[in-house]
Structures are given as structure tokens and as C-alpha cells.
């Protein structure tokens, strides 16, 4: 296996982007899953459609929309630019792209976890004197852990592989925004760099297997805890 110094940076950047995107999306994903599963409100269907939209849209389209939103003339981009926070063509843009594309997977998994909770457990908690936020933290959150874990793993893995939206909003700048898939794309375009591309592919496989392995170990740990 042969890795250039820029490849090491790309691996590190990929991990940083995937971890940050997952960590940032988690609280919002949990809140939205909770709203969809437990609350009745107008516009619930619209929210569900909006959350799931990135699943059906081509990533390049998502990237383009993000570019319109975060670019210098976009309404968020303008605001951030005036505050001196550049987004486009930085690693932060890659985080936003990954978070947007992986978000529906996260919400879906957490939602499945929440839907499997017996409503009477929540009712029991409320009737025992717990406020809604107390019930959320002491009953819903711990009983959704498997869903949260599955969603986080999926989202992390999806973020590692994110290409289409990232290349539009973050570009492909080696050492700054170039993640593993973008580096492989570069290598694959010149036949002499096949060995380098293969090395990065191997790294991708190793990271993915590690994530899946960790997911399994933690899931079993949760299972053991709940059958004590």
C-alpha cells in the first residue's frame, strides 16, 4: 500500500468531515425524529418530505442548491460573509454537504428506534411525575440508543463516501477540501496512478469495516445491558 502525504491529509480530512457532520446533525436529527414520531402538528407531512428529499435527489443537485444558498450571493452566504466566516470551498462546506446528504438516513434510523418504544412507557413516565423533557431524556433517549447508533454509523459511512455535493460546494483542493473519494477521482483520471487509487480504496474499505464492526460491538453491548 502506497500513500502520498496529500492522501494522508485526505484521509484525515474525510474522518474530520464525517465525524463533524454526524456530530452536528445528531441533535437536530433526534429532535426532528421526535417531532415526527410523537407530535401532531400541521405541516408534518411537509417536514417529512423535506427531511427525506436528499435521499431522492442526485447529490449534485443538492450541492448546487447548497451553492446557491451558501455562495456569496446566497442569503446565508451573504450573512456569513459579512461576519467574516467563509464557507464555500472550505472543509466546512464539505461538512454541510455531508450533513445534508446523510441527514435522512440518520433521521430514519432514529425514527425507527423511537417508533419501537411502547407508548405506554412514555405514559407511565408522565403519570409518575416526569415533565415531557424529563421523559425525553430518561425514557425516549435511552430507548432510542440503538436507532441513534445505527443512524450515526450510517450517516458517518455515507459522509465518508460523499462526492457529488461536496465537489460542488467545497471543490477538490488537495490538502484543504480533498477527501478520500475526491482524491480517488483525481487518481482514477490518470492511468499511471491506479496503484495510488487502489491504496485509498483499501483505506476506505478498512474505515468502513471498522465502523460496521464498532456498530456491531456497541449494539451487542446495548442488547446485553437491556437483558440484565
Amino acid at each position: 500500500m502506497k500513500l502520498a502525504p496529500e492522501d494522508i491529509v485526505a484521509i484525515w480530512l474525510s474522518l474530520k468531515v464525517a465525524l463533524t457532520a454526524t456530530a452536528l446533525a445528531l441533535p437536530l436529527g433526534f429532535a426532528i425524529a421526535w417531532l415526527i414520531v410523537f407530535k401532531k402538528f400541521r405541516g408534518k407531512v411537509a417536514l417529512e418530505v423535506l427531511v427525506n428529499l436528499p435521499l431522492t435527489l442526485p447529490p449534485v443537485v443538492i450541492g448546487f442548491f447548497l451553492l446557491l444558498l451558501l455562495g456569496k450571493n446566497g442569503w446565508i452566504g451573504k450573512l456569513l460573509d459579512s461576519s467574516g466566516i467563509p464557507i464555500i470551498f472550505t472543509w466546512k462546506a464539505a461538512v454541510i454537504a455531508s450533513a445534508t446528504v446523510g441527514f435522512p438516513l440518520l433521521v430514519r434510523s432514529i425514527r425507527l428506534g423511537m417508533e419501537s418504544i411502547d407508548r405506554q412507557l412514555i405514559e407511565a413516565s408522565r403519570s409518575l411525575g416526569a415533565h415531557w423533557y424529563d421523559t425525553l431524556l430518561t425514557i425516549i433517549l435511552p430507548l432510542s440508543l440503538r436507532g441513534i447508533l445505527a443512524g450515526s454509523s450510517l450517516m458517518f459511512a455515507r459522509s465518508l463516501g460523499e462526492f457529488g455535493a461536496t465537489i460542488i460546494v467545497a471543490g477538490n483542493i488537495p490538502g484543504i477540501t480533498q477527501t478520500i473519494p475526491l482524491a480517488i477521482y483525481d487518481y482514477a483520471s490518470s492511468p499511471s496512478s491506479n496503484a495510488m487509487a487502489l491504496s485509498l480504496c483499501l483505506v476506505s474499505v478498512i474505515i468502513s469495516v471498522t465502523v460496521l464492526f464498532l456498530h456491531e460491538v456497541l449494539s451487542r453491548k446495548l442488547d446485553r445491558r437491556s437483558t440484565l
Binding site: 411502547d118 405506554q120 412507557l121 405514559e123 425514557i139 430507548l143
Partner: peptide, 9 residues
Amino acid sequence: FQQAMLFPH
């Protein structure tokens, strides 16, 4: 409740 509804965790 009819089922004990103990918190499983």
C-alpha cells in the same frame, strides 16, 4: 397498566 410497563433499561 395492564402490562406492567416497567422501564426496560
